[in-house]
Structures are given as structure tokens and as C-alpha cells.
Design a binder for these strands. Structure first.
Length: 448
RNA sequence: GGUCCGGUGGCAGAGUGGUGAUGCAGCGGACUGCAAAUCCGCGAAUGUGGGUUCGAUUCCCGCCCGGACCUCCA
């Protein structure tokens, strides 16, 4: 059997994927902090991981896919305060929207979707262990991770302790022993959400919730941990430090899969630059499957510069695939993913390579090969494509009654060779957002 | 400033030490009342200067350009 190879951020090279337990692959993806609508960057992350999960499910009998929801966060607190509501009331909408948007992208839901608010006991237990192990200390109501206590700190993200000090922000809190020390627990004033702890009423720091949730649901060591590459430091560096120091002997995640950032007009899409594209808005412009396809047209470890032109092109490419499928309407789906698609995917999720193979299958299907269409459908299952029928794709949601009237009027005009009238009616149909296509013996229509 | 990544045809985007995938766009043709779609064909690229090699787009070094992380971010 061909083996799956993945680029591991930890070792900075491609590695053959070797499961800890082939009977159950365990994967964790850093999910959203829920205070706003998801942006297109969240979408790339989820779509890429979705393909990885679908691929793993083809290779192994069971995959446990965990994607957390971070619902404790200072931005959430700020919103709650502004609106005078509870944090649950703030996060409720964003969580629902997140689910809706990801479903629109045909991303499968994770097997488990743990929330930080449900894991306070686990979080507190890890912090207690870190204090007991001498890796954390209490200072002015805070609990801090002592970077100096961990000789491996910085290795993951390729940073030396000196750099970390040099790069630390200028206003280092006075109670920190080292500039790089980070917060595990911080006190909450009475007006802020808080939980009782051995260190008083407070709330967890940013990174600790992932250490707690991944351990609880996947165990001390698990196979794959994913996220955007902006999480490599500090988030993942700190997760590793927390988990490995709290549980000596732990390796935490085996393979780290990070996708590159999404650019808009050549610049990183980010909160601070204010140039981020809200996924929901992008989904207004094109079908979710086209957005999904756009996100897989470049390799996950390359930057992807989003543009409306690219989105249109993605839609046009999908049109061609759906045409090939339409040619074999009630055809079967191959039981196996075609090798031409599987091979590039097994090579570190080379989705552009897989797409090239899809085009070859579409060519063959259009030339009349039913087998190629069946293979195309099978390939769609691992890539999360072709979720619609060709009919739904080309003609979903149109006013069928009005269309039928116009088409029959136009057919009559054509029959009497009144092409002026035929073209007038065609213009009217196109104003409905459709494209008319004539064939010997009839006409057909599809969405622009 | 430190660390890291990348520069492939008009655009998007793979692979590869030995004649440079794939898609979109463009051009010519077939088909069509005209289109659309489909099919056939065509043109078009490896930032730059060195090095290693029989041979480099691929490996190494310099330079130029772009991007990311070092601060909340997927």
C-alpha cells in the first residue's frame, strides 16, 4: 500500500505517517475563538484538515477528529461587557454561524467539539501539576509558566531563549521571572467572568485549554495536531511546553500540520490589518463548493492570495467537472479512489496535483467513458466535492415555471426562424442569471 | 533587527538533476442561425549573478524582490 507522507513542523521535513494506534487515528485541530463570524482563513484551515481527515478515513478503520471551541477569551469578555450580557450569550451566535459556514463548505463536523468552559477542572488540574513539577509559579494572583524550567522551550518554533527575551514586548509584567513566561491562570475582577481555583477566582490563559482538551479526548500522546502557521508561536510552542512538562514522558502530538496564511491583495489577512474577509460574505458570491475548491487549488503550505477572479475560475473549473458528471447522470461511484488522485494526496496533501488528475478524468468522462465519471465521483468523496447533483449545480433554485414558458416561446421562435425574437428571449433568460445552451433537438439552461 | 519561507508562461498553480503538469485567459479550426458547451490545434515561463555537474528550473553561495513569525490572529 502506498503510504501517507506529511510535512511535520516539528522536524521540518516530510515524514511517513505512522499511527500510534492504527485502530484509531487521533487528530486535533485548533478551532475558533468564538466572538465573531469566521473569516476565510478559518475556512482554509478547516477545509484542508477536512481533506486530511477524509483521506485518513480511507486508510484506517477509525479516526477521532477533535476540534475545540475556545469560548473563554478576553475579546469575548469585552463584547459581553459592551453589550451587558453573559459570555454564553456572546458566543452562542458565533458558534452557530461557524457551524453553518463550515457546513456550507461541506466540511464534515468533528467527532468531538469540546469547549473550554466545560473543561475548567481539567485545566486547573494541569496547572496544579505544573506548579508541583516546578514548571509554574504563582505571582500576584497569576500562575505563570516558567520558561527557564524547560530546556526544550523554543525548540519547536525554532527560537533560542535569547531571541525570546530580545523579541519579548517591552512592557513585561513585573511579576514575571522571565520575559517569555506566559500566563496559565489570571485573576478576574468581580465584573469579569471567572471560576474558582486554588489561586482565587480567575480564568485560564490562552494556551492551556488546548492542552487540557486534547489530553482529555485524545490521550496524552496523539497522532496529528493542526492549525494555521501563525499558531506555531506562541500557541503551539506553549501547548507543547505545558503538556510535556505536566506529564513527563509525553511527546504530545506526533505530527504537526500547519497551513500557510491566506493573503488578500498580497498581504496577510489579519484582525489587526482589518482586511479579513468574512466567510459568510464570500459565500454570498459563490457556492460553498466553489469556495472550498478555491481553497484547495493551491497547496496548503503555500500562501494563497484570494481574489474574486480566482473564485470565478474555481467555479468555472467545477462547472466542467459537473458537465462531465452530467454526461453520465445515473452512473455509479467507484468503490476506490482512483490512483491518479490518491497518489498526489498521499504526498503531503498535494491537492493541486489531485485536481490535475480530476481534469484528466473529466476529459475521459466527456469523451464517453462511464468508468471515468465513476472515478470522478469517488475522488469527489475524498476531496469533499460534487456534493450536488449536476442538475442541482446547474439549475438549483430557479423559477422553473417561468423558465419553461420562456424556453417554449423561444423554441417556437426558432422553429419559424425568427432569430430576433429567439435572441430577445435568450436575453430575458440570461437576465435570470442563466446561460442558454442549444443542442440538436432542444435547449438547456445553467446557472452563470 | 533576529528567525523562517518563497520567487515557474498574461493569470492561477504542481512536479522534476536530463526534451517544464494542470486549469483559466488568448489565437486558429470543427460544430452552431448566432451563441454556449464540446472537440482538434497553436503560441507562451523557471527573478538575477556565480559554483558543483556531461547536464540545473531542481543542489550550493551571493544579490534583488515578495511574504510570514518574533504581539491578538487560522
Amino acid at each position: 500500500m502506498t503510504q501517507l507522507t506529511l510535512y511535520n513542523t516539528r522536524t521540518r521535513r516530510k515524514e511517513v505517517f505512522t499511527p500510534l494506534d492504527p485502530a484509531n487515528i487521533r487528530a486535533y485541530l485548533c478551532g475558533p475563538t468564538v466572538y465573531d463570524r469566521a473569516h476565510l482563513g478559518n475556512a482554509r484551515n478547516v477545509v484542508i484538515f477536512d481533506i486530511l481527515i477524509r483521506l485518513l478515513r480511507r486508510l484506517y478503520p477509525r479516526v477521532t477528529y477533535v476540534r475545540n471551541i475556545t469560548d473563554i477569551d478576553d475579546k469575548i469578555n469585552t463584547r459581553a461587557k459592551e453589550r451587558g450580557v453573559s459570555i454564553e450569550q456572546v458566543t452562542e451566535g458565533p458558534i452557530r454561524w461557524y457551524h453553518e459556514d463550515m457546513a456550507a463548505l461541506h466540511a464534515l463536523p468533528p467527532d468531538l467539539e469540546p469547549r473550554a468552559t466545560d473543561h475548567l477542572p481539567e485545566i486547573i488540574a494541569i496547572i496544579e501539576k505544573l506548579i508541583a513539577n516546578g514548571h509554574a509559579y504563582v505571582a500576584e494572583g497569576h500562575v505563570l509558566f516558567a520558561v527557564a524550567s524547560n530546556p526544550d522551550y523554543g525548540k519547536f518554533s525554532g527560537r533560542s531563549p535569547d531571541e525570546l527575551i530580545a523579541g519579548a514586548r517591552v512592557d513585561v509584567a513585573p511579576y514575571k521571572r522571565d520575559a517569555g513566561d506566559f500566563v496559565l491562570w489570571k485573576p478576574s475582577s468581580p465584573d469579569l467572568p471567572g471560576w474558582e481555583s486554588p489561586w482565587g477566582r480567575g480564568r485560564p490563559g490562552w494556551h492551556i485549554e488546548c492542552s487540557a482538551m486534547s489530553r482529555k479526548h485524545l490521550g496524552q500522546d496523539f497522532d496529528i495536531h493542526g492549525g494555521g502557521d501563525d499558531l506555531i508561536f506562541p500557541h503551539h510552542e506553549n501547548e507543547i511546553a505545558q503538556s510535556c512538562c505536566a506529564f513527563p514522558g509525553s511527546h504530545f502530538a506526533n505530527i504537526w500540520v500547519h497551513n500557510r496564511m491566506l493573503l488578500v491583495n498580497g498581504e496577510k489577512m489579519s484582525k489587526s490589518l482589518g482586511n479579513f474577509l468574512v466567510l459568510h460574505d464570500v459565500l454570498e458570491k459563490a457556492p460553498g463548493e466553489a469556495v472550498r475548491f478555491l481553497l484547495m487549488r493551491s497547496h496548503y503550505r503555500s500562501t494563497l492570495d484570494f481574489s474574486d477572479a480566482g473564485l470565478k475560475e474555481a467555479k468555472a473549473e467545477l462547472d466542467r467537472f459537473y458537465r462531465a458528471l452530467e454526461k453520465h447522470k445515473d452512473g455509479a461511484t467507484s468503490p476506490e479512489i482512483p490512483q491518479s488522485v490518491m497518489t498526489p494526496l498521499l504526498d503531503d496533501l498535494n491537492t493541486p496535483g489531485a485536481i490535475a488528475a480530476l481534469h484528466a478524468l473529466a476529459d475521459a468522462a466527456l469523451a464517453g467513458e462511464a468508468r471515468a465519471a465513476a472515478d470522478l465521483r469517488a475522488a469527489g468523496q475524498v476531496l469533499g466535492l460534487f456534493n450536488a447533483t449536476p442538475d442541482e449545480w446547474f439549475r438549483g433554485g430557479i423559477d422553473q415555471y417561468k423558465l419553461d414558458m420562456l424556453l417554449s416561446d423561444r423554441a417556437a421562435a426558432k422553429q419559424r426562424k425568427d432569430y430576433t425574437e429567439a435572441d430577445r428571449i435568450r436575453a430575458e433568460i440570461e437576465a435570470m442569471g442563466l446561460i442558454v445552451e442549444d443542442f440538436p433537438g432542444g435547449s438547456s439552461v445553467r446557472l452563470k
